[in-house]
């Protein structure tokens, strides 16, 4: 598997990546976050008392959490805790039964998934979801177009749908960032699982999300690749002001990336705070290890 871009660096300390110095984020293809978003005191994502049932099973029980602008939050917990279900509720792939979700001041509850995405929510999936007939480049281009909602049949018929230089530039910048530039024309069906996860990440990033929701992005990656992925996420947060909500079982990676951790167990939030503090919480240790304090 190819390594990620040198610009995202081998700096694995989590203390800021070198990507910005490579110019990836400062070019016209990759605008920085608007100041109004950075300075806005309201939380970016506000989840209030959300519950979700599957038949007789309550997968998410009265969950509340916030993600501030530019903040990196880890959503951790054992299998079956309800993390992915909560992700699906936020993105609109599942409809929650009670509670409310706000994103950037907009009530999400009645919005379909595609409109939530266009508001600036990027997403990767626990189970890899790629477009099997498409190349890596096409993945990013379709995401770029979808974000803008510019696809019109009449434009296609009048041959007005060719990629613009700006689109090519943005796609190229993201491919460089995640280290997939040399695989741009490869069909994803020819890629391994780890590469596909990077394609998913790149596809989410090209939409310039304000919030990136990454669901177990390191699954299928080796230790080295996981460190580089952590570095990219940290870079995106620091240099672009992108908020990150990360579901991950690799707690080492979570520790490198996040500012704060929220722990879920059996559908409920059981702890919320700085990562090290939360991990020392007896209830969290009990949930993870099955040992009481």
């Amino acid at each position: 598997m190819a390594t990620m871009s040198d610009t995202s660096g081998s700096d694995t300390s989590g203390s800021g990546a070198t990507g910005a110095e490579g110019g990836v984020f400062s070019g016209p293809g990759w605008p920085r976050m608007e100041p109004r978003l950075i300075g806005n005191p309201d939380p970016l994502l506000l989840v209030r008392g959300v519950s979700k049932w599957f038949g007789g099973v309550q997968a998410v029980q009265d969950v509340s959490l916030t993600v501030e602008r530019g903040e990196s939050v880890g959503l951790v917990g054992p299998n079956g805790a309800g993390k992915t279900t909560l992700f699906n509720c936020v993105c609109g792939q599942l409809q929650h039964e009670s509670g409310s979700i706000e994103f950037d001041g907009v009530e999400l509850d009645r919005l379909p998934t595609f409109k939530r995405a266009r508001l600036g929510i990027g997403r990767t999936y626990q189970r890899v979801e790629v477009f099997s007939d498409m190349t890596v480049y096409d993945h990013l281009m379709v995401s770029e177009r979808a974000r803008m909602g510019t696809g019109r049949m009449w434009k296609d018929l009048l041959n007005l749908s060719s990629p613009t230089p700006e689109e090519r530039s943005r796609v190229g910048a993201v491919l460089d960032l995640v280290g997939l530039a040399d695989k741009a024309d490869v069909p994803v069906s020819a890629l391994g699982l780890g590469m596909c996860r990077l394609v998913e990440l790149a596809r989410a990033l090209v939409g310039e999300p304000i919030l990136l929701m990454a669901d177990e992005p390191s699954s299928g990656l080796d230790v080295h690749e996981t460190r580089e992925l952590a570095s990219v996420l940290r870079t995106l947060q620091h240099e672009r002001g992108m908020a990150v909500l990360l579901v991950e079982h690799d707690l080492g990676m979570v520790g490198e990336v996040v500012d704060r951790a929220v722990v879920m167990d059996l559908g409920q939030v059981i702890a919320d705070g700085p990562f090290d503090t939360v991990m020392a919480n007896p209830e969290v240790r009990n949930a993870y290890l099955g040992v009481s304090a």
Partner: peptide, 23 residues
């Protein structure tokens, strides 16, 4: 064109298609 790309994406994964903003 763009609609063709959207349709190809839809064939591959409806979940991911809507997740990137395709209606």
């Amino acid at each position: 064109g763009t609609v063709g790309m959207y349709l190809a994406a839809m064939r591959g994964s409806e979940t991911a298609s809507s997740g990137i903003g395709i209606n």
